[in-house]
Every structure is written in structure tokens, then in C-alpha cells.
Design a protein around this nucleic acid. Structure first.
Ligand SMILES: Nc1ccn([C@H]2C[C@H](O)[C@@H](COP(=O)(O)OP(=O)(O)OP(=O)(O)O)O2)c(=O)n1
Ligand SMILES: [Mg+2]
Length: 742
DNA sequence: ATCCTCCCCTAC
DNA sequence: TAAGGTAGGGGAGGAT
């Protein structure tokens, strides 16, 4: 509840954003991710919205979101002043699966009678899970993620309203979960006892005060207490040892000890491990403060050259060596980070708790729908370029690309190239020097992330206005299910939408129309730029016949090469191979996919944004270390990112994965400036008993995981060789506590 | 059979 | 100089 949408006092978030955005000199920069996804200083979900305060556009956008909530909130509070009683005050439900009454009705009840309705499950904000009977497969999953929360039938809501008071939920527990009752009741009891206390008007709308106390007392978030943390550590050690592969342990002294002592519980070496960790922490802290000073200087003087040279490195900034806030700054400028995190921002905007209305559950149509469908795929043309040059008509017929650098010898990457530039072979992802070779007169324009965000919002506003079933693929690309329209109506709609996009955003869009998502997608490629194409059922075979296999979605360079090696170049040739054979060669699912796609078949259906399954942060550029402390500092920064992102999304995780890149034995210098070069990828994960978003827990886990790679323990000399001159990348990923809930 | 872990692949 | 992220799908192989 602390961070649930709208539970914040409305005043702070706007002014807070304001301050931050003014600090940002370059308007095109994204706000630092940590701040963007939820600064630790503020638990407001508006401020913690991804990128919520990176610029003035976002500021306005957030204000809108907030107003939207306040409208709904006041609708709810009208109930207060009216005759409606606040039956559900302090109750916050998450509805899982199909129910009677429907999601929508339940939401209405909650709003009317002073409760809250969450569209997404979060242990922080949800007090009760509402669900009717589920298929057995779902029950198991539900059991996992509901642990500690009541799972109650919807009649509890209805009966409470009839009784005009909040009835005890216990009699309404889901029967299917009853066999775990003895264990669960221990968790349920304190929670249900607490519920009435949380039900004061103040607490339900003031996240930072009353509720959190109640929450800790509830023991739902056991990971908040010191005691619980120690418990987790015990568990971690256990898992860690169990997970340690013989190969890894053989290489290390302490590892040997551990593996020889290890047993099923694996708690033996807890003390040793903990001592190591705390001494590492100490030195990391020191390093941190030194770095902070540096950064203050550098920022204040707007240069900090002398400080940079103090490090005696040829690589000035742009690396973890010189910039203590490197991770933060890096994300501000990363295009891939921008498009990679866009989805989460979209989720917040169009499927936040004040937005509701998931059409996916609106019907029994899944089975019956198998009839015939019509899909539109729509995609903005050279998105990043179009947005930046929309008011620079003189550039429209010239080759233009978006890139950080105009250096004709540089290794900066082209993000997007317009169509004149593509005629020269300029493509997204290539080095700018290559692009300049192909097209010396290529005009390079800078990024404007804030403008991309705004256009994407306009784009989706238009789509949602014209179609109920919209599936967002990315910031500039979506599927629409328009099965209820005739062919002609579909063409007209696509055209209308494209015109509206052009008028509103100044950017052209292209559309593909087909009977499946596959065909619509493929049609768009042909339609581009600024066109549309309908591939009717009769034309599918002809269309696919000569189509290179590599153009199928899901067939990238690796799979394409495998196919070409078997002399399969086109979909026509692919069609000649039996499904069995494809599945034998490429796996069951992949084989099935190839077989279907080559025939234009595609059983996917247009669905709303799904619940996210993982959250992570990674940096593979500018990562250079001199010693282990710097490695640790970098790890801590990534943990902080992940922790903040989890909080921003109101998620907690149980399974943590650390990924690192290790320079290959005889790898040369990376061709790309500050790149990671030729690396081996390693990953290791761990599952802890209690889900968490706590930064300190994450940091401890990451240390242990990092240790389990045996890089640190493989003698410090070796460590030096590996990382000092070189490129370690690190990734941290966390799985939210529950998966595919409904 | 089904799950889990550690990868690789793909798309934007 | 320059910002090689993010998340889901899925396969191989081992544990249950
Ligand atoms: N390797 C890539 C691919 C994409 N993008 C960014 C820039 C693109 O503008 C945006 C959208 O990706 P698209 O694949 O839709 O490419 P464009 O919109 O640029 O071109 P097209 O007209 O083919 O859609 O994502 C990027 O930075 N780097
Ligand atoms: Mg596009």
C-alpha cells in the first residue's frame, strides 16, 4: 500500500519532479534510472514511475496520471459523504482469473465502498486475493505466490456489501487451497487481525506513515526485519553451497572446505562467509566515499580534468574507472535502455491501477474465437529519426541517422536511419564509421528521448481511441485485433489511424493487415515507408513462397544460418520439410513455429500487456576495473538499480540471477570504444525463501553469487588479469515473486 | 512428465 | 571517443 498507485499525497510528486528536471541540463537525456524508477527517498508511485521525472514532458504526464487517480479517489470518497459505508476500507484486492462478479464489477464495488482494487499483484499493496475455482495447474502457482495472503472467493465481497459491513473472510477461503490450511493460517491470522487497524481513512491514503507499521507487524514482509535477514542469509548459504559445482569448488581453497563440509543444510561455514563479506563491505564503503568526492568536484568544475588524470588512465570518463555515478549516467544516454524499459512505462500508463479494463478477460471467446480474425500491425517509420527531424523539412529527403557521435572514424552505433539513408545501406546497429563509409554525406542528428516518449504516448492514445484490443510490441509498434470489421472497413481504419498519427505527431506510420499476427507483421515490412498493405488469405502462399526464411519473426541470424546450411533459403523450401524433421533439428517449439509460419499459420492472439516476469539491470559498456573493490562497487550499483526498479514496479523477487561477462582467454582489444569485446558469458542464480526488494539483501546475494563464480577466489593475481585490463559486465535480474497470475 | 538451472537466441 | 539494455521464449540436461 505504501506505493500503490494513488495512495500518495498529491502535492509532492509534481514539485519533486520539477526540481529534478531542472537539474538536468540536456533535455534529451533520460532521467537516471534509479531516480526514475523510484527514488529511495520517496515512496510515491508517481515519482517511482519509470522515467517519471526525467524531463518536463514527464512532469506533465505524471500530473495527468495523478488527476486521473484523484478523480477516481474522489468518486470513492463521494461514497463517504453519501450514504455508502466504507465497508472495505483498508482492503485491497487482487482478482485472479475469471470470477463472478467480473473484475470490472468487483472493481466498482471496491471503489464504491472504500476499498482498493489492484490490477497487478503486489505483496505490498494487496491484502486479499480474490478468485473463483481455478484449474489445478493454476492452484499450485497460486499457492506459491499467495503465501501469507488470504485467497478468498468473490462472494465475500458481495456478502459483505449485503451485510453492509466487512465480514470475516475465513469462511470464504478458496476450497482448493484448504489442504494447506494449517500452515497458512499461521500467516493469515495476524494479517486478518490487522486488517481493521489498517482501515482508518488516513492510512489507506498515506503510504509512508501508518500502513508501513502495520505491515511490519503483520510479518508478511518478513524480510524487513534483521532477524529475518539473518534467516535469509542462512538459507542463502545453504543454497549457495548446494549450488556450487564441483568444478568451481575445486579451484579454491575455501571452496574445497565448503564442499567437503557441505551437507543438505549447508550451514556450516556461515560465520566465515559473513566475515569476508563484511570486510569487503567496509572497503567498498571507503571507495564509495572517495568516489563521491571526485564526482562533486567533477560536476562542480564542469570538467574535473585534474582529477581524471589522477587516476592515470588513458580512458578519461565514460568508464567505471573515472565516474562513480557511471551506471546512473550511462542509463541516461542509452537508447537500448530507453526502448528496453519503455514497456514498463506503458504498463503504468495504460494498465495502472486507476486504468483498469483488461479486455482480455472480457469473454469466453477464447475457444469460440478460432473462426477468422483480422489483424493490423502498425509501426512508425524510422521512429527516432522521424521524431527529431519532423520540423526540419530540409532534412526530409536527405540521408539522416540518429547517433551519439558524428565521428567518421568512430564506433558509435546508428540507432535509426531514415529511408534515404537506407538506400545507401545504412542500418540500425552499425558503427557510424561504417555508415559514413557507405554514405559520406550522411547527416547525424542527436537523440531526443523525451520527444520519443511523448510521440509514443500520442501514438498509443490514438490506437486505443480507435481499437479496444491493442497489443503493444514496443514504443513504436503495435497489433490491433479488428476481427469484427470487414476487409474494407479494416483498410479504412488503418488509413484513418495513419493519417491521424501523421497529423498529431508529424511522423509517418505504416500498416500491415492480415489474417494472423504473422501476416500483418510481414505485410508492414513491404508497406514501409508510409504505406499499408493487406495480404488476403488467398495471397498468403504466394507471398511466402519466395520470402527468405530470415524475414520470419523469430528467425534471427543464428537460426537462419542453420537453415541455410540445410539449403533452406525461402519459406517455400521450408514448407517442404516435415514438421517432425524440423522439430528434431530445432526443438519441439521452434520446429512447430517454423512449420506453421512457413504456411502463414499463427495461433497467437492479440493480448494486453502481460504481467512482467523478471526485472533486471545490466551494463556492458565502459566497464573497466582496477581491483576487486571496484568490481564490488559496480555490483552494488547494479543491485541498487534493481532494487529501485523493483520498488518502482511494486514487485518483489525470490530468484536472483547474476550474469557476468569474462574476457575470453586471448581476446583482442574490443573494436568498439569502451566495449566489452569478446567475452564468455556466465550466469548463476539463487532462490531465497522470502521475496524481497531490499537493496541490502540484494547486495549480499550478489556478493555470494559473485563469489560462487570463483573469480574472486581464483587468486587475486588472476582476478587482476581478468578484470583490471578488462571488461566485465554484470547483470542482475530478479524474478517477481509470482508468475503468470491469471 | 515436470521442474529447475544455465545458457542461447530474438526483437525492439 | 560514446553511452553494446531488456525481457521473453525456448532448448539441453539433470533432479525429482
Ligand atoms: N538496433 C536498434 C533497433 C531499434 N532501435 C530504436 C530506434 C528505432 O527508431 C526504434 C524503433 O525500431 P524499429 O525496428 O521500428 O525501427 P525504425 O522505426 O527506426 O524503422 P522502421 O521504419 O523499419 O520501423 O528503436 C535502436 O535504437 N537500435
Ligand atoms: Mg518503426
Amino acid at each position: 500500500m505504501k506505493r500503490s498507485l494513488g495512495s500518495n499525497s498529491s502535492n509532492n510528486s509534481g514539485s519533486g519532479s520539477n526540481k529534478k528536471s531542472k537539474k538536468n541540463n540536456n533535455p534529451s537525456n533520460q532521467k537516471t534510472l534509479g531516480a526514475a524508477w523510484g527514488a529511495a527517498s520517496s515512496r510515491s508511485s508517481f515519482r517511482s514511475s519509470p522515467f517519471s521525472d526525467f524531463g518536463s514532458y514527464m512532469e506533465v504526464k505524471n500530473r495527468k496520471l495523478q488527476n486521473q487517480f484523484e478523480t477516481e479517489a474522489s468518486a470513492a470518497s463521494r461514497g463517504v459523504s453519501g450514504s455508502e459505508k466504507l465497508i472495505f476500507q483498508g482492503v485491497s484486492i487482487f482478482v485472479d482469473g475469471f470470477t463472478i462478479p467480473s473484475h470490472q464489477e468487483l472493481k466498482g464495488y471496491m471503489m464504491k465502498y472504500g476499498g482498493r482494487f489492484e490490477n497487478y499483484f503486489s505483496r505490498r499493496s494487496v491484502t486479499h486475493i480474490i478468485c473463483s475455482n481455478l484449474p489445478d495447474s493454476k492452484v499450485k502457482n497460486l499457492r506459491t505466490f499467495s503465501r501469507g495472503l488470504p485467497v478468498v472467493k468473490p462472494t465475500w465481497i458481495v456478502d459483505s456489501i449485503s451485510a453492509n459491513r466487512l465480514l470475516g473472510w475465513v469462511p470464504y477461503q478458496l476450497d482448493q487451497l484448504n489442504d494447506t490450511q494449517p500452515k497458512l493460517s499461521a500467516f493469515f491470522a495476524p494479517r486478518s487481525h490487522l486488517t481493521p487497524q489498517m482501515a482508518s481513512p488516513v492510512t489507506s491514503f498515506q503510504p509512508d506513515t501508518g500502513y508501513s507499521e502495520a505491515e511490519e507487524g503483520s510479518s508478511i514482509r518478513a524480510d524487513d526485519s534483521e532477524e529475518a535477514r539473518d534467516h535469509i542469509d542462512d538459507e542463502i548459504d545453504g543454497v549457495y553451497i548446494e549450488n556450487t559445482t564441483p568444478e568451481l569448488t575445486e579451484q579454491t581453497g575455501t571452496g574445497d572446505l565448503k564442499s567437503s563440509e557441505m551437507n543438505a543444510e549447508g550451514l556450516g561455514n556461515y560465520d566465515i562467509e559473513e566475515k569476508e563479506v563484511s570486510s569487503e563491505l567496509q572497503s567498498t564503503t571507503n571507495l564509495h566515499s572517495t568516489s563521491d568526492n571526485k564526482s562533486v568536484h567533477a560536476n562542480g568544475k564542469n570538467g574535473g580534468k585534474s582529477i581524471a588524470t589522477a587516476a592515470g588512465s588513458s580512458t578519461r570518463r565514460h568508464s567505471t574507472l573515472e565516474d562513480p555515478n557511471f551506471v546512473e549516467n550511462y542509463f541516461k544516454n542509452s537508447r537500448l535502455h530507453f526502448i528496453g524499459t519503455w514497456r514498463n512505462r506503458y504498463r503504468k500508463r495504460f494498465h495502472g491501477s486507476s486504468n483498469g479494463l483488461k479486455w482480455a478477460d472480457s469473454g469466453q471467446n477464447t475457444a469460440e474465437m478460432a473462426k477468422k480474425s483480422t489483424i493490423i500491425h502498425i509501426d512508425l517509420d524510422c521512429f527516432f529519426v522521424s521524431v527529431v527531424i519532423k520540423n526540419r523539412l530540409e532534412l526530409h529527403d536527405k540521408p539522416v541517422a540518429v547517433c551519439h557521435s558524428d565521428n567518421p572514424k568512430g564506433t558509435a552505433e546508428i540507432s535509426s536511419a531514415n529511408y534515404p539513408a537506407r538506400a545507401y545501406g545504412v542500418k540500425a546497429g552499425m558503427f557510424v564509421r561504417h555508415a559514413k563509409d557507405l554514405c559520406p554525406q550522411l547527416v547525424i542528428v542527436p537523440y531526443n528521448f523525451e520527444a520519443y516518449e511523448e510521440v509514443a504516448d500520442q501514438f498509443y492514445d490514438i490506437l486505443h481511441r480507435h481499437c479496444r484490443k491493442v497489443q503493444a510490441l514496443s514504443c513504436d509498434e503495435a497489433f490491433l485485433d479488428v476481427s469484427d470489421l470487414s476487409d474494407v472497413e479494416t483498410e479504412v481504419l488503418a488509413s484513418t489511424i495513419r493519417n491521424e498519427i501523421l497529423e498529431t505527431t508529424g511522423c509517418s506510420a505504416s500498416a500491415g493487415i492480415g489474417g494472423t499476427m504473422l501476416m500483418a507483421h510481414l505485410a508492414t515490412r513491404v508497406a514501409k515507408p508510409a504505406g499499408q498493405l493487406y495480404i488476403s488469405a488467398e495471397k498468403v502462399e504466394e507471398f511466402l513462397d519466395q520470402l527468405p526464411v530470415g524475414t520470419l519473426p523469430g528467425v534471427g541470424s543464428v537460426l537462419k544460418e542453420k537453415l541455410v546450411k540445410q539449403n533452406i533459403q525461402t519459406c517455400g523450401q521450408l514448407r517442404l520439410i516435415s514438421k517432425d524433421s524440423l522439430q528434431k533439428d530445432f526443438g519441439v517449439k521452434t520446429g512447430e513455429m517454423l512449420w506453421s509460419y512457413s504456411r502463414g499459420l499463427d495461433l497467437r492472439s492479440v493480448t494486453a500487456v502481460q504481467e512482467s516476469k523478471s526485472i533486471g539491470a545490466e551494463v556492458n559498456w565502459g566497464v573497466r576495473f582496477r581491483d576487486q573493490q571496484e568490481v564490488q562497487h559496480f555490483l552494488q550499483c547494479l543491485c541498487k538499480e534493481v532494487s529501485l526498479r523493483l520498488q518502482g514496479c511494486e514487485m518483489i523477487g525470490r530468484t536472483f540471477t547474476l550474469k557476468i561477462k569474462k574476457r575470453k582467454k586471448d581476446a583482442e582489444e574490443p573494436t568498439k570504444y569502451m566495449g566489452c569485446g569478446d567475452c564468455d558469458n556466465l550466469s548463476r542464480s539463487i532462490t531465497v525463501p522470502a521475496a524481497t526488494d531490499d537493496i541490502e539483501v540484494l547486495q549480499r546475494i550478489s556478493k555470494k553469487l559473485f563469489g560462487s563464480f570463483c573469480l574472486g577466489k581464483c587468486v587475486s593475481a588472476a582476478l587482476k588479469r581478468w578484470f583490471c585490463s578488462c571488461y566485465l559486465l554484470s547483470i542482475y535480474r530478479v524474478l517477481p515473486h509470482m508468475q503468470d497470475a491469471a
